[in-house]
Amino acid sequence: MIVKFLRNKVVEVEPRKDGTLRVSWRLTDDLLKMEVNLVVQPPALEIIEATAELGRFVPKGLEDASEIIEDVEGVNIGAGLRKIVRGVLGGPEGQSLLSEAVLECCNAVILHFTRPGLEIGEALETDEERLEAVRAMVKSSPRLVRSCISFQDDSPIMKGLDL
């Protein structure tokens, strides 16, 4: 059977010598070829540079994506990010493809910073130690509570946490 549609997406975060992070996001599918690049300045995680390039069958409204995306420069990856990015790139009815690409870049930056903490927990020797590490993470980050199946009230992780 010949496949009817294929899509590949990749996003990568690369720390640079000047202390910034370069985030590169690329999408290739049967209809669209798209690339978004951000430069993010820690520790405030300000987006200091944003570029976009589209090819193949460019959706209506995204012909000027390279100019539109500049509106996210100056935005911090922080509280209210989704509302801000969707808002500055054209509002809820606006350039959803572009705003979702930027949000995926930002999510990659967040996960880039999440990785070291998870690595510390993984390096622990026993299951009990690892469980305690996860519990400590929940205590310090109450937003995790009920955020997914692992942190629902009936999860063994949550036993005795009283959150």
Binding site: M1, V13, R115
Partner: peptide, 21 residues
């Protein structure tokens, strides 16, 4: 050196006249 990379791939087959898998 890269510290974070995510790949997402999707393929769509038409497995029946009205079914996309």
């Amino acid at each position: 050196m890269l510290k974070y990379l995510r790949n997402k791939t999707m393929s769509v087959d038409r497995t029946a006249p009205d079914e996309l898998t």
